[in-house]
Design a protein around this nucleic acid. Structure first.
Length: 499
RNA sequence: GGCGGCAUGGCCAAGCGGUAAGGCAGAGGAUUGCAAAUCCUUUAUCCCCAGUUCGAAUCUGGGUGCCGCCUCCA
């Protein structure tokens, strides 16, 4: 089998073939940097991170370009409101963006162009479009003439003649009068008095939104790329317009594969800034939801379908993640007890799967995992393979926790070790990385010191020995209130963890 | 009005013509003084109607309901 992806351009599942063997060029639409990212952004970038990780695991050299839109009305509005500048607002939010994405374990793009740093390319492309008669200027604005692109509408399935124009009456009247066709869109917008602007052959102004992506793709990757990514809400008009501009300017197909992710919904409605029903990544993390929980939550659904966000579904993902994680952590925590080779710290790279596959059962799991991802990134199935692999490992982790001395026969142990290695490396393709439990030493902010806890444990043990269970339970409860959980192990030792 | 998507157990969610993955929650059992964790077992005929087929959640037609895009948007 080989990788199959649903191409928005053809609306079909297609076998993926890259332009250059062994190499993949990807452009992913990034964010407008005027605020923090929400869960919807997280979904998009996590899903595409998995695509990228999977391609890498299959031996491709992936060039992944993602832009920052740092010229925009909303950024300007924010700058005015905060009495700062467009650059300051952008810089701040780019920093925040990186913080969130790094926390979620999203691989950094190969390069991240910004509109402000791509102005030459933008101006050149607009000029080219003018030369080809596909653009016209009116009072310092420059518009793209959609009628010049015979294939206009091929991505979004729209027929210009059948569209109900100005469906919601939101087209600006003045602007409408300047346009030759209501669907024409701005390539360059003349600056109003006192606005932040950039010079151009058409006077001072700012680039339109769509042109930056066309210019960046050309600048960073060339005329035709393998894969273009984005949210399904970008299909029209953004990607449609991008295609029109690039394909007229370059006389080449812009991208062979267009992939779009589904939206995150809240109560059946799209999560968005304008509806105000969004939850930022930052706030979820601050609530104590782990980054990997978010990943699991997002990857349990297929990337093209809408995904409903509720507290309950996040809670379910959180419990699921804790269990999966206990298996993932096993070899990191207990390799000495198990006499396993010391693991190579955290696996930063995406390793070759085959090196861990020895037994038939493991190789089958590995194959199932690969088949699932090759089938239009069926992460849901891939996760079920992970849970299957994890089951015996969790059991083992539990035995160790309880202080069971006999850790099974040697051959079993070896198989379990390989199983663990396979689990870790497959999980890594989904970007699911072990989160080691908080160390006992990291106790800032806690009221109980370690010695106090040990004292309490000794006291409780004495109570238990004298069969004063009420007292023993009281001590347990008291500690629990302070976030310390006691675990009685098989060998009579009581362990504790901070929650 | 145009284009597109979705409807599967209490919840989330796979399934792409061969007799319903997985996760969460629940139930029963094992273990435990209790608790936590773990292990085992267990819970569906797929929105409705009609058709194609030996066989359909999966294909076709018709309903119903929800959602997205047509404005900025991951």
């Amino acid at each position: 089998m080989s990788l199959k992806l649903t191409n928005s351009l053809t609306k079909k599942l297609e076998t993926f073939r890259s332009l250059n063997p062994g190499e993949v060029s990807i452009y992913c639409c990034g964010v407008t940097v005027y605020d923090l990212c929400h869960l919807g952004h997280a979904r998009s970038y996590i899903v595409w991170d998995v695509l990228r990780r999977f391609l890498i695991s299959q031996g491709y050299k992936v060039t992944f370009i993602q832009n920052f839109t740092d010229i925009d009305d909303k950024i300007l509005a924010k700058a005015t409101k905060e009495n700062s500048t467009m650059t300051q607002v952008s810089e701040k939010n780019i920093k925040e963006f990186h913080q969130d994405m790094d926390t979620l374990g999203i691989l950094r793009p190969s390069r991240m162009p910004r509109a402000t740093r791509c102005l030459d390319g933008i101006r050149e492309m607009i000029q080219k479009l003018e030369e080809k008669g596909a653009a016209y200027s009116v009072d310092g604005d420059v518009y793209f003439a959609v009628m010049k692109h015979s294939e206009y509408g091929k991505l979004s399935g729209r027929d210009l003649s059948e569209q109900q124009l100005n469906a919601d009456g939101r087209i600006d009247k003045e602007e409408g009068a300047r346009k030759q066709h209501p669907f024409d869109f701005a390539l360059w917008k003349a600056a109003k008095e006192g606005e932040t602007s950039f010079s151009s052959p058409w006077g001072h102004g700012r680039p339109g939104w769509h042109i930056e992506c066309s210019a960046m793709v050309l600048q960073e990757l060339g005329e035709t790329i393998d894969i273009h990514l984005g949210g399904s809400d970008l299909i029209f008009p953004h990607h449609e317009n991008e295609i029109a501009q690039s394909e007229i300017a370059n006389d080449k197909k812009l991208a062979n594969y267009w992939l779009h992710n589904g939206m995150v919904n809240v109560g059946g409605q799209k999560m968005s800034k304008s509806l105000g029903n969004f939850t930022t990544i930052r706030s979820l993390l601050q609530e104590g939801i782990s980054p990997m929980t978010l990943r699991l939550f997002i990857l349990q659904a297929h990337y093209r379908k809408p995904l409903d966000f509720t507290k309950e579904s996040i809670k379910a993902a959180s419990t699921g993640w804790q269990r999966l994680n206990s298996a993932l952590c096993l070899g990191l925590i207990s390799h000495q007890k198990l006499k396993w080779p010391k693991p190579v710290t955290q696996q930063k790279t995406i390793s070759d799967l085959n090196s861990y596959v020895s037994s038939e059962r493991l190789s089958k799991a590995s194959q199932q995992f690969k088949d699932a991802l090759e089938d239009d990134l069926n992460t849901s199935i891939a996760i079920s393979v992970l849970f299957d692999l994890a089951r015996p490992l969790r059991s083992l982790a539990n035995q160790i926790e309880r202080g069971v001395s006999d850790l099974g026969a040697e051959k079993n142990n070896k198989e379990l070790h390989l199983r663990w290695m396979l689990l870790v490396s497959l999980a890594n393709i989904l970007g699911l990385q072990p989160e080691l439990p908080q160390g006992k030493e990291s106790n800032q902010g806690h009221i109980y010191s370690e010695s106090e806890i040990i004292e309490a444990i000794i006291e409780r043990k004495a109570a238990k020995l004298s069969r004063d269970f009420a007292k023993a339970d009281n001590i347990r409860e008291e500690l629990k209130d302070k976030g310390i959980e006691l675990i009685d192990k098989k060998d009579g030792v009581t362990d504790w963890i901070r929650k």
